[in-house]
Amino acid sequence: MTTALSVAFTLNGLPVALEAPEGMTLLQALRGPLELSGPRFGCGAEACGCCMVALDGEPRPSCTLPVEAARGRAVETVEGLGSPEAPHPLQEAFLAEQAGQCGWCLSGILVSAAALLRRDPDPDEAAVRAALEPHLCRCGAQNRMLRAVLRAARAMRP
């Protein structure tokens, strides 16, 4: 018999609560009962970054994180960054730099880049590379992604 856990947290600025079976990961909860498609399953071993979310503002892989680790905390996914009517500067910059190809890795990369820009609104190239290092992209778009993050940082300056 599986034990159900009550888990309440803030998701993209809104309160959510769910009953989750013991052993459910945050990624499974986001893609399942919470019906989000941004965080993706890639490797299941915290090695690719496709499932990256911001937990209390810090990037964390959600594929191995138990859903109860989010209890009482703030979770942000790519869906929380912007909307078609009001895109986040990172989303605009990624489009302008044509920084995505297949797109599988982009939601995690955008979450990590947003966390970087909150921490450091004027990052240098080395800081961007370090922030994006946990992400695996096989399309070869890394240089465009780097330019996009730096472009967004410039656009966000007062």
Rank of each mutant, 00 (worst) to 15 (best):
Met1Val: 13
Met1Ala: 12
Met1Pro: 12
Thr3Arg: 12
Ala4Ile: 08
Phe9His: 11
Leu11Ala: 10
Asn12Asp: 15
Asn12Arg: 13
Gly13Met: 01
Ala17Asn: 10
Glu19Cys: 05
Glu19Val: 01
Pro21Cys: 02
Pro21Phe: 06
Glu22Phe: 09
Gly23Pro: 06
Leu27Ser: 07
Gln28Cys: 01
Gln28Phe: 05
Gly32Asp: 00
Gly32Phe: 00
Gly32Gln: 00
Glu35Cys: 00
Pro39His: 01
Phe41Gly: 01
Gly42Met: 00
Ala45Phe: 03
Glu46Pro: 06
Glu46His: 04
Cys48Tyr: 00
Cys48Lys: 05
Gly49Asn: 10
Cys51Val: 03
Cys51Ser: 11
Leu55His: 03
Gly57Ile: 04
Pro59Asn: 02
Thr64Phe: 00
Thr64Met: 06
Leu65Ile: 02
Pro66Ile: 00
Glu68Trp: 10
Ala69Val: 03
Ala69Ile: 04
Ala70Asp: 04
Arg71Phe: 08
Arg71Lys: 06
Arg73Leu: 07
Ala74Lys: 08
Val75Ala: 07
Val75Cys: 09
Val75Thr: 02
Thr77Gly: 14
Gly80Cys: 10
Leu81Phe: 04
Leu81Ile: 10
Ser83Met: 07
Pro84Gln: 12
His88Glu: 12
Gln91Ala: 13
Gln91Leu: 09
Phe94Leu: 14
Leu95Ala: 15
Ala96Asn: 13
Glu97Phe: 09
Glu97Val: 05
Ala99Ser: 12
Gly100Met: 15
Gly100Ser: 15
Gly103Tyr: 10
Gly103Leu: 12
Ala115Val: 12
Ala115Gly: 12
Leu117Ile: 14
Asp120Phe: 09
Asp122Lys: 15
Pro123Asp: 15
Asp124Gly: 15
Val128Glu: 05
Arg129Thr: 02
Ala131Trp: 05
Glu133Lys: 14
Glu133Asp: 08
Leu136Met: 10
Leu136Asn: 01
Cys137Arg: 02
Arg138Gly: 08
Arg138Leu: 05
Cys139Tyr: 10
Gly140Tyr: 05
Ala141Phe: 07
Ala141Pro: 02
Met145Asn: 07
Arg151Cys: 06
Ala152Ser: 09
Arg154Lys: 13
Met156Glu: 08
